[in-house]
Design a protein around this nucleic acid. Structure first.
Length: 229
DNA sequence: GGAATGATAGTCT
DNA sequence: GACTATCATTCCG
């Protein structure tokens, strides 16, 4: 490319894309074998990759929530296995995508061994690559504020064109999948732990994990000191 | 800046 | 028939 303007940001993009094009950093199913709270913390700082045509849409996970198995009243698995939630009872490292409030999709990753329920909700990303395409998918102007693109579970699914029909049950550990989670070796800063958002049952449990002070976290438009960092 | 509210459809009782 | 792991808009201060 012509590289008239090379900012630190675009260097991060270059690095992420080259990682994405190789198989480096692919996470194995073993990554997801542990309980949801362990996996939820472990996923913060990893890359979510969406291959759309020839383009990579990439975001770094900055916020997750753990949903336990049949002991967690807030979890979809609580009422037992149904056709809707069967993915979270299946093998680890698969996408569980559901439609909510008649408007939005949410992306989860199954964890625990096959037969045991548990998953992690991906709540927010920091957009890394493909921002113009993300904005178009979100029906926003191409120069929209990056934090408007993926700062919430419904938003990030819209920005990455993730739908139940195409992605539910997809293996996120397969380098050939058009939706994957990988590691580029990045180590996030301090990870804060808080109660989960938007639920009415078991809402006191500290099962939400996010990068402290990160402005791409959901609902943090102003409560983070001036929205810096 | 911050709280309240309506939209909208799949899933379960 | 009643929910809901949300978002954008509208209003109020």
């Amino acid at each position: 490319m012509d590289s008239t303007l090379v900012s630190p940001k675009s260097r991060e993009v270059e690095k992420s894309i080259s990682r994405a094009n190789s198989d480096l950093g692919t996470l194995l199913p073993e990554f997801y074998l542990d309980p949801p709270d362990v996996v939820a913390r472990r996923l913060v700082g990893k890359l979510l990759l969406r291959r759309l045509q020839a383009e990579f849409l990439i975001g770094r996970i900055v916020e997750t929530e753990a949903y336990l198995g049949q002991d967690d009243p807030a979890a979809h698995a609580f009422a037992g296995q149904t056709s809707r939630n069967q993915v979270i009872f299946g093998p680890p490292g698969r996408a569980y995508v559901y439609f909510i409030y008649g408007v939005h999709y949410c992306l989860n990753v199954s964890c625990e061994p096959e037969g045991k329920a548990g998953c992690v909700l991906i709540r927010a990303l920091k957009p890394i690559a493909g921002l113009a395409t993300m904005a178009a998918l979100r029906k926003l102007p191409a120069d929209a504020q990056p934090r408007l693109l993926t700062s919430g579970p419904g938003k990030l699914c819209q920005a990455l064109a993730i739908r139940r029909e195409t992605h539910n049950g997809m293996d996120l550990t397969n380098p050939d999948s058009d939706l994957q989670i990988r590691s580029d070796g990045y180590k996030p800063g301090h990870i804060a732990v808080t109660p989960r958002i938007g639920i009415s049952k078991a809402s006191h449990l500290p099962l939400r994990f996010h990068v402290e002070g990160n402005r791409f976290v959901s609902g943090a438009s102003s409560r983070i000191d001036g929205g810096r960092r």
